[in-house]
Amino acid sequence: MANAVFTTEQKPVFVYGTLRAGQGNYFAILEGTTVQECDAVLDDYTLFGSGVPFAVQRDGRKVVGEVMDVDPELWAGVLHRLDRLEGYRGEGRNNMYDRKVRTVTLADGSTIEAYVYLAGETSRRWFSDCEEIPGGDFVKAERGESVPFLGTSD
């Protein structure tokens, strides 16, 4: 198919920043909407930013987060609120974050495909001077916990 249409079929969502359990946007958008939440890692990406993280591809790094499996009856509304929060207006647009399907690794070692909001064109320009978040763990970095980089160093 020459021009595949990006679908919004339900998949779990991998979250790594303010949408993680216990964080502000989790309470605003995800709390009470999930049927399952699991610790997970996104390989070959890293986090940049402070207060508002964004993930960019970087071989050998890892992003620590959680997979949120949203109740199917609530899916459309939750996806709409997530897209709005992340400044996602559709595939190929000038988005703050792009919604992509990526393979993430669950705590038990299994893998699953999930939506991930990755740095879009706008956020890459806006945060171009931000530092990498050590260990790819936004929550620990925000608490000031020392975390070594996961994966290989550059």
Rank of each mutant, 00 (worst) to 15 (best):
Ala2Lys: 13
Asn3Phe: 09
Ala4Lys: 14
Ala4Pro: 14
Val5Pro: 09
Val5Leu: 12
Val5Glu: 12
Lys11Arg: 15
Lys11Cys: 06
Lys11Met: 14
Phe14Asn: 00
Phe14Tyr: 06
Gly17Arg: 01
Thr18Gly: 07
Thr18Ser: 15
Thr18Pro: 10
Ala21Leu: 15
Ala21Asp: 11
Gln23Phe: 09
Gln23Leu: 07
Gly24Trp: 12
Asn25Phe: 11
Tyr26Trp: 15
Phe27Met: 09
Ile29Asn: 01
Leu30Ile: 11
Leu30Thr: 03
Glu31Asn: 15
Glu31Asp: 15
Glu31Ser: 15
Thr34Ala: 12
Thr34Ile: 08
Thr34Met: 09
Gln36Trp: 09
Asp39Pro: 09
Asp39Trp: 10
Ala40Leu: 04
Asp44Thr: 04
Tyr45Arg: 03
Thr46Lys: 10
Thr46Ile: 08
Leu47Trp: 03
Phe48Leu: 14
Phe48His: 09
Phe48Met: 14
Gly49Leu: 03
Pro53Cys: 07
Val56Asn: 08
Lys62Val: 12
Val63Thr: 04
Gly65Tyr: 00
Glu66Ser: 06
Val67Ile: 09
Met68Gly: 02
Asp69Cys: 11
Val70Ala: 01
Asp71Arg: 06
Glu73Gly: 15
Leu74Gly: 01
Trp75His: 07
Ala76Met: 13
Val78Met: 04
Val78Lys: 03
Leu82Phe: 06
Leu85Tyr: 15
Gly87Thr: 07
Tyr88Gly: 04
Glu91Asn: 14
Glu91Ser: 13
Arg93Leu: 11
Asn95Trp: 03
Asn95Val: 06
Met96Trp: 15
Met96Arg: 13
Tyr97Thr: 04
Arg99Val: 05
Val101Ala: 07
Val101Tyr: 07
Val101Ile: 14
Thr103Ser: 01
Thr103Trp: 01
Thr103Met: 01
Thr105Val: 02
Leu106Val: 03
Gly109Pro: 05
Gly109Asn: 07
Ser110Val: 01
Ser110Leu: 03
Thr111Ile: 00
Ile112Ala: 01
Ile112Trp: 00
Glu113Gln: 14
Ala114Tyr: 00
Ala114Gly: 04
Tyr115Ala: 02
Tyr115Leu: 03
Tyr117Glu: 00
Leu118Ile: 13
Ala119Val: 07
Ala119Ser: 14
Gly120Met: 03
Thr122Ser: 12
Thr122Glu: 12
Arg124Ala: 08
Arg125Pro: 03
Arg125Lys: 13
Arg125Ile: 10
Phe127Leu: 13
Phe127Trp: 15
Ser128Tyr: 10
Ser128Lys: 12
Cys130Tyr: 11
Glu132Leu: 11
Glu132Lys: 10
Ile133Thr: 04
Pro134Lys: 05
Gly136Phe: 02
Gly136Lys: 02
Asp137Ala: 07
Val139Asp: 05
Val139Phe: 06
Lys140Ile: 06
Arg143Gly: 10
Gly144Glu: 10
Gly144Gln: 07
Phe149Arg: 13
Thr152Trp: 11
Thr152His: 13
Ser153Cys: 13
Asp154Pro: 13
